[in-house]
């Protein structure tokens, strides 16, 4: 039992539980100017009935591009770490392909 790490967890726990008291109440809908704009205007501007779809693909499509790049980076990473055999054995131009 690493006491330093237990201490860090304790401090973080106290911080998080104390902050629960100051959050806006569950169900009260405060500070939602941007969300109200999306709910009122997404159908007129993008033509999509699913508002979340219009946010992910239209208003914040750049974030979705970043997310797909993360998927590509993870695929390259897993490929880099796991591969047991040499790459050149599977190349298109290699005559000694196994």
């Amino acid at each position: 039992m690493n006491w330093f790490r237990a201490y860090v967890i304790g401090v973080l726990g106290i911080l998080l539980f104390v902050s629960v008291l100051y959050l806006p109440g569950f169900g009260s809908f405060q500070n939602k100017d941007v969300a109200n704009y999306y709910l009122q205007n997404a159908w007129k501007e993008t033509g999509s009935a699913n508002i979340i779809n219009s946010i992910v693909w239209d208003y914040r499509g750049y974030d979705t591009l970043g997310e797909e790049t993360v998927l590509f980076a993870a695929a390259m990473g897993v490929f880099l770490i796991i591969r047991k055999k040499e790459y050149h054995k599977y190349g298109l131009n290699n005559k000694n392909r196994k």
């Binding site: 750049y62 974030d63 970043g66 993360v70 993870a74």
Partner: peptide, 15 residues
């Protein structure tokens, strides 16, 4: 958006 690009940089560095 800054968070998403931080993740691109971090995951490529982990790999």
């Amino acid at each position: 958006n800054m968070f998403v690009f931080f993740e691109i940089m971090s995951i490529s560095s982990y790999a």
